[in-house]
Every structure is written in C-alpha cells, then in structure tokens.
C-alpha cells in the first residue's frame, strides 16, 4: 500500500473529529440526562387522543395530519378510538393538558437534540406557559391576553 502512514493518520484524525461530540461530553463530565416526563393531571381528561404507543411513535404525524385537515380540508373535529371527540387544535387541545412544555415536549426533544419551533408561532395563554418557553411570549400580563383567557 502506498502512503499507508498518511492514510492511517488521516483516518485517525477523521474518526477523532467525527466522534468529537462524545469526547467532548466525556471530558466536560456532563452526564446524559434521560427524559423525565411529567404527565398532566387534568381531572376531566384521563386519556390522550390516542394510545401511548401510538403517540410516542407518531405524534408528529398526527399533528401534521390534524394541521392539514383543519387548514386545508375543513375538518376540525377528531374522534378517538374510545369515541371521545376532540377539537383538532394544538394549543387548545394538546397544550390544554400538556401545559408545561418544558416538562413534557422538551424532555425528549432535548434528549435527541431536535429543536422545536412550534411556539415560535403558536401562542398559549400566559398562565399556561411555564418554564423557558414563557420567555417567547411578550407581555404576558397584557389586557387582551387576560380577557381572552376568561373566554377560553
């Protein structure tokens, strides 16, 4: 093999760089934080819109489907397996129970390094938002917010 020394050295450098995030974590001593979800404890909603297994794997597809149906097909209600019906609204229905996004959504999404930008556009009533996401909403004590909250 020609230039075997150079090739091996190159490979070592490449592998080193490629795996550098792992070395960085090891060196800095940041322990891996496993997701720790806090499930909502809302009295009138004991069950999610679909089974746990389904939501775990396909919640993003469900959200996307809801979105398409509401925006494009004019279908606004969803009937779950046990016959309960839900308004297909991310903020009102989903976040109505999962009020604390940082204890729920962010747990897994931070774990796998997927940045969520739902709340860059979707707004929640100020009192519902806890944790760092709250900073994304300006003037949480505004008049219109409080008024609309009562209507909700």
């Amino acid at each position: 093999m020609y230039d075997s020394g150079k090739i091996i050295a190159g490979l070592v450098i490449f592998i080193g760089l490629f795996t550098s995030p792992f070395w960085y974590d090891l060196a800095s001593g940041t322990a891996l934080q496993t997701p720790d979800l806090v499930l909502p404890t809302k009295a009138d909603q004991k069950q999610c819109v679909a089974s746990l297994e389904f939501m775990r794997r396909d919640h993003m597809a469900l959200l996307n489907d809801w979105r398409t149906q509401v925006v494009r097909d004019g279908i606004t209600y969803y009937k779950s397996a046990n016959g309960k019906e839900f308004e297909m609204r991310y903020t009102k229905t989903c976040l109505g129970c999962h009020t604390n996004t940082s204890q729920f959504c962010d747990q897994c999404h931070n774990y796998i390094g997927v940045t969520l930008y739902c709340l860059d556009c979707h707004n929640m009533p100020a009192t519902q938002i806890q944790g760092p996401m709250a900073a994304k909403i300006l003037n949480p004590n505004s008049e219109i917010l409080n008024k609309l909250q009562i209507q909700n």
């Binding site: 679909a50 089974s51 389904f54 794997r57 396909d58 993003m60 597809a61 469900l62 996307n64 489907d65 398409t68 149906q69 004019g74 279908i75 606004t76 209600y77 969803y78 009937k79 779950s80 397996a81 019906e85």
Partner: peptide
C-alpha cells in the same frame, strides 16, 4: 411527515375516523 388515514387507522386502532370525520365537521356546523 404525513400519515395516511389508513396508516392512522392501522396504527392507532381507530375504527371510525375516516367515516365520521366529515360527518363531525358538518355536525358541528
């Protein structure tokens, strides 16, 4: 990512979604 209604039915075991969804839309109207 999109999920077809058929897959949704299969995965979640939701039986009546396809038929009822539009009915619901009009019902609520």
């Amino acid at each position: 990512m999109s999920i077809s209604r058929r897959t949704l039915l299969k995965l979640a075991g939701i039986t009546a979604l396809g038929v009822t969804a539009e009915k619901y839309a009009t019902a609520h109207a």
